[in-house]
């Protein structure tokens, strides 16, 4: 016992150092995969408030660009309205089916928000949003902008939330190549904020350069067909029958400011149904 106390006294600085270092590293390795609380992130009230003050100052720099983008989006949406289109086929006999508004139910809702803090050159880049639980944001929801996919909600507090952006190591959004419907997973190598990669695309079909990559919509986080990027390069992976596809992101993560959080109203129903599938061991990489 005396030896033990002497040991502690002798190495007390080192032990204290090890304790603090241990706490810091534990936070690092547990929180980045699954944050148990909103503290220690920008979703907390103090940090969130500081971020929104700082954003109040800097957001005006991007204002004209943001306005232009919103106007473009409005133009596109306006052109989708049936009022502005001429029907090629008029509803004819009794057999033809005419779908009215009542034949649909809403599946996805969009919650508008603003990014108040972001980085793009770290290994894992998280963005902070000025909306939180109060506006209906929940962990795991998708985030898109008018240009394309931005990321997935990582952490939520009452008034703020943190997005795990497409510029994080294990973002894993399910995507597909628009023309051939070839599915894959979106990854980021951690270096270039303009390029990501798509893995798991089998190489028995050739992929055209610059073909669109969109969300697959299978996981229910994003609706199908939200743009992600374009194929910039394909290279064979040695020893595996798959392509390594380099994706040029549609989104410019440096300037993205106004976003929509995607709320899937039917998600719990889909999940409940999928839970009934019996687990079987899948050997997969």
């Amino acid at each position: 016992m005396r030896n033990f106390l002497a040991f502690i006294r002798r190495f007390r600085v080192l032990l204290f150092f090890a304790l603090l270092q241990g706490i810091a590293l534990t936070i690092l390795f547990t929180f980045s995969t699954f944050p148990r609380s909103q503290y220690l992130t920008t979703a907390s009230t103090v940090s969130g408030t500081v971020m929104s003050w700082s954003n109040d100052v800097t957001k005006h720099f991007e204002l004209s660009g943001s306005n232009k983008k919103l106007q473009e989006e409005n133009k596109w949406l306006r052109e989708q309205l049936t009022v502005n289109k001429l029907a090629l086929k008029a509803p004819m006999g009794i057999d033809s089916v005419v779908l009215t508004k009542d034949d649909f139910i809403q599946r996805f809702e969009y919650i508008p928000g603003e990014i108040i803090s972001s980085t793009f050159s770290r290994r894992n880049n998280y963005f902070t949003l000025n909306i939180g639980k109060k506006q209906g944001v929940e962990r795991g929801m998708g985030v898109i902008s008018d240009q394309g996919v931005v990321g997935v909600i990582h952490n939520v507090s009452e008034h703020f939330s943190v997005i795990k952006s497409c510029l994080t190591k294990d973002i894993n959004v399910d995507v597909m190549i628009s023309s051939s419907r070839e599915p894959g997973l979106l990854k980021w190598d951690g270096v270039d904020p303009r390029r990501g990669s798509m893995i798991g695309v089998s190489n028995d079909r050739s992929i055209k350069k610059w073909s669109q990559i969109v969300t697959g919509g299978k996981s229910g986080i994003f609706p199908r067909g939200i743009p992600v990027g374009k194929v910039a390069k394909t290279a064979p992976v040695e020893g595996q029958p798959i392509w390594d596809v380099t994706v040029l992101f549609a989104e410019n993560f440096r300037t993205v400011q106004y976003i929509y959080v995607v709320k899937n109203i039917l998600k719990s129903e889909q999940e409940k149904l999928e839970e009934t599938i019996p687990d079987d061991p899948i050997e997969d990489e």
Binding site: T26, I27, L28
Partner: peptide, 8 residues
Amino acid sequence: DSMSNTYG
């Protein structure tokens, strides 16, 4: 860390 999402 808590203000830049770098987790420690």
